[in-house]
Design a protein around this nucleic acid. Structure first.
Lengths: 143, 143
DNA sequence: CCCAATTAAGTTGTGCACAATCTAAACGGG
DNA sequence: CCCGTTTAGATTGTGCACAACTTAATTGGG
């Protein structure tokens, strides 16, 4: 029989919570140079990859709701990185489009992943293993 | 040479961020029954383990600063779960002490870790592996 | 064809996270 | 013993997360 305690250090959840914040903290100075917060960076990753994306798909990709995304996108818009386009054939839907400025930022962001990979210092093997475990966990927990 | 891209799904950081939020979301209904948020639950874990703790040590254990802890503790206090005691020999230091009500909550929280462990569904082996990887990661990244 | 139900998005309110700033108590070297 | 420095803690302001609610456009069944 497995033995579950209330001790902080036993909890996988705390290791997860602490690691997530530690990684975000490591990103912060790099992203400050780009004028982005961490969640804003994630949005930009999706846009750099797909060019333009409906808000709905952005929400699905990042697992965020409109309550988080709407104000975040408003800030990216007033920073001049994105534009909102309401679809003519469905006035409910809003498509997020990169501006020229937003696209240019991609070049400057190229250095971020290697710098973080270096700081994480896990090696290719453990990185893949960890990513797989995290996906399994997220999957299990959200069904 | 390792190949770092800007694709969202490549990023370990996103898997980490998503998994952390998914796990917290799974805790939510259980903690709602106890009248706690997830960070409040973490504080209570430390208090249930150590009885009473100076705010400074709480901050160190959870890696949180006073800006996060002060208002959180104020809410736990007005919920009647904790008490603040200013140390007579050092008026700067505040010690957090469980109230009777706070101590009683421990009994009701006993069911939480097994329920979460069950939902995570990782097995003892992978759980230990994941926890170890997360600690190494947090360690590497915050040096 | 119409209207009830659904869908996309936004808004409001609460509670973290964290940087920056502030206060007051304690310490310590000259 | 005094004053500059350090330390414990709180406060303020910004930006997520997320629940609950609102709005407006679209859809689909009778």
């Amino acid at each position: 029989m497995r033995d579950f305690t209330l001790e902080l250090d036993d909890q996988l959840c705390f290791a997860l919570y602490a690691a997530s914040r530690a990684v975000t903290a490591r990103y912060r100075p790099l992203l400050d140079d780009l004028g982005l917060t961490y969640p804003q960076y994630l949005v930009m990753l999706v846009l750099w990859e797909r060019g333009s994306v409906p808000v709905k798909d952005l929400a699905a990709a990042l697992q965020l709701d409109y309550g988080t995304l709407s104000p975040l996108l408003k800030r990216l818009e007033s920073a001049g990185l994105i534009r909102r386009e309401r679809r003519p054939d469905d006035e409910r839907s809003v498509r997020i489009v990169l501006t020229g400025h937003g696209d240019e930022l991609r070049e400057r962001a190229k250095d971020v992943p290697p710098a973080i990979g270096d700081a994480m210092n896990l090696g290719q093997e453990d990185t893949a293993r960890l990513r797989a475990l995290l996906r399994t966990l997220a999957d299990n927990v959200s069904r």
